[in-house]
Simulated scan of single mutants.
Amino acid sequence: MCLNMLVNPILLVATLMLVASLLMLGLSSFIPIDSNYDLLFETNTLVIAMYIYCVTHRAIRPYKSLHYGVLLLIANLIYDVFTELKQFDEWSDRHELLDTFLEDGLVQISFLLIACGITKLIAKLKDQSKQDELTGLYNRKKFDAIKLKEFELIYFDLDGLKEVNDQKGHQVGDLVIVRFSQALSQTALGDEMVFRVGGDEFVVTAELGRGEEFVNQVNCRLHGEDIPFSYGIEVTNQENFDLALDKSDKAMYQMKQSQRPIAAKG
């Protein structure tokens, strides 16, 4: 299957290039051409560029500078092909400034736009790699961007999610995770940040003095919904983040262990 994925595009592009080359050779029989070799290579370059645009245009369309840059490059390649026709070549010789702009200026502008677009695309991809796919929350990779210098670190863990997955299916379990993440996001204020750090584990960096209040607000938002959770809170700063993360995790685990007998009776 992987081989087919690699071969098929190559065969397709090669076929398109062959067809374009034959068309250009046929055209050269009726219209004077400045250089058949240049026409052949420039036509093939145009075919490759148009193929790349066709398979990527949906992905690059949101990045306008990249999108317009590729279109400008294609326009430049079309101009190069046309100027191999003697009639257009003679016209370009009579308009040297315009010809230089269309042949060289457009290339520079298109590459500048493409460079800006690729920069934005890479930045977006890097940011997406720091987001949890299911919930849209940040993941562990975003820990280096915590905004608060001092904060209360809250480590949350959902109770009984395994049982939900086993009895009702993982789709229902995912809905529980998403609903809980929404409650956390809706509770966060200002520079407070919410992270999903595991299957059913979440971390919140809350403003100093707001840890318990944050937990109470989450409980209020989930009132009437069967989404129990345990948590641990540690007051810390950016320098001692890892230590606080470990301590809050242990505090959360102690709460979870203390609640198990009660849950078993129920």
Results as ranks from 00 to 15, higher is better:
Ser29Phe: 03
Glu103Cys: 13
Leu106Ile: 15
Ile78Lys: 04
Arg196Gln: 03
Leu98Pro: 03
Phe202Arg: 03
Leu11Phe: 09
Lys141Val: 03
Asp166Asn: 15
Pro228Gly: 10
Lys247Ile: 03
Asn240Asp: 10
Lys130Val: 01
Ile109Ser: 06
Phe180Lys: 03
Ile114Val: 15
Leu102Thr: 02
Lys120Ile: 05
Leu137Pro: 10
Leu243Glu: 14
Gln259Val: 02
Ile60Lys: 04
Phe195Gly: 07
Cys220Ala: 12
Asp93Cys: 04
Ala49Met: 15
Lys247Cys: 02
Glu163Arg: 13
Ser21Val: 08
Gly190Thr: 02
Asp249Thr: 07
Asp89Cys: 14
Phe214His: 00
Cys54Met: 08
Leu125Pro: 01
Glu90Thr: 00
Gln87Glu: 14
Asn36Ser: 15
Met193Asp: 07
Val197Ile: 15
Gly266Arg: 10
Cys220Asn: 10
Thr135Lys: 09
Gln131Cys: 07
Met5His: 06
Val47Tyr: 07
His57Leu: 02
Glu212Pro: 02
Ile78Val: 13
Leu77Lys: 01
Gly173Glu: 08
Ala59Gln: 11
Ser65Val: 00
Leu97Ser: 05
Gly232Thr: 05
Lys64His: 08
Gly199Trp: 10
Ala206Lys: 01
Ala14Thr: 06
Glu150Ile: 04
His170Leu: 07
Trp91Met: 15
Ile74Gly: 03
Gly266His: 12
Gly169Ser: 08
Leu77Asp: 01
Glu90Leu: 02
Leu23Pro: 05
Leu98Glu: 03
Val70His: 11
Asp80Gly: 07
